[in-house]
Amino acid sequence: MSTEVALRPAEVAEQLGQYTVIDVRTPGEYAAGHLPGAHNVPLDALPTALPALKAAAARGRLLLVCASGSRSATACARLAAADVPAATLVGGTTAWAEQGRPVEREAGGRAVWPMERQVRLAAGSLVVAGLALGTRFPRARWLSAAIGGGLVFSAVSGTCGMAAVLGRLPHNRPRTGDLAATLEALAH
C-alpha cells in the first residue's frame, strides 16, 4: 500500500513540471484559481476517476491539491487504499499563492467562494435562523444545537457533512463534459 507524502510549496515549485497536478476542489473553487497545469477532479469524483488516476500515476508522480491541504490529504488516503501513490501540497493553493507562486484562473470562470467560506455562511445562517425562530417557536433552537453539534463533529473527525451537501449545489458541480475531458486527458 502507498503512503501519503506531504510536500511544501517551495519543494513543489522547483519540480512542478514533474507532477501531474490534480485539484480536488469543486469546479467553482478550481476556476477561481489553481496551480498551473492542474486538472480538476473533485474529491467526490475520485471513485469515477480512479482508472484515469492509476494510468496517470503509472506515467509519473501525482500531486493532489485543495485549498488548505485537508481534502487533498483525504484524497491521498483514498488513492493509497487503491495502491495509487500520490503526494499532497501542504497548505494547498492558499499557501502556494501566499508565497507568491503563480495561480491560473479559468477564462470567464465563475467567482465561487471557497468551500470553507460557503460552509461558514450556511452554518452561521442556520444558527441565527434557529435562534431567531426560537423566540417564537422554542423547538426551533434545536436547529442551532444541531448545527453546533455538526461543527464539533466536523472538527473532531476531519470530515464535513455540510461541505458534502454544498458541494452538490449546481455552482459547485462540474459540467459532465469537463470531467469526462479531464479523465480522458489523464488516461492517455
Rank of each mutant, 00 (worst) to 15 (best):
R8A: 14
A10T: 12
G17L: 02
G17K: 08
G17V: 11
T20K: 10
V21C: 13
V21E: 06
I22Y: 12
I22Q: 07
T26G: 15
T26A: 15
G28F: 06
H34G: 00
H34E: 07
N40A: 01
D44Q: 14
A45E: 15
P47I: 02
P47E: 13
P51N: 10
A52I: 09
A52E: 13
A56E: 14
R59T: 00
R59S: 08
G60I: 12
R61C: 09
R61G: 08
L62P: 09
L63Q: 00
A67P: 14
G69F: 03
A73P: 10
A82Q: 15
D83H: 06
V84D: 06
A86V: 01
A87G: 11
A87H: 04
L89Q: 12
V90S: 02
W96D: 06
E98D: 12
P102V: 02
E104G: 00
G108L: 02
G108F: 01
R110W: 04
A132W: 14
L133H: 07
S144W: 01
I147Q: 05
S154G: 10
V156C: 04
T159I: 00
C160M: 10
R168P: 05
R168F: 00
N172F: 05
D178T: 14
A181R: 11
T182N: 08
L183T: 13
E184H: 12
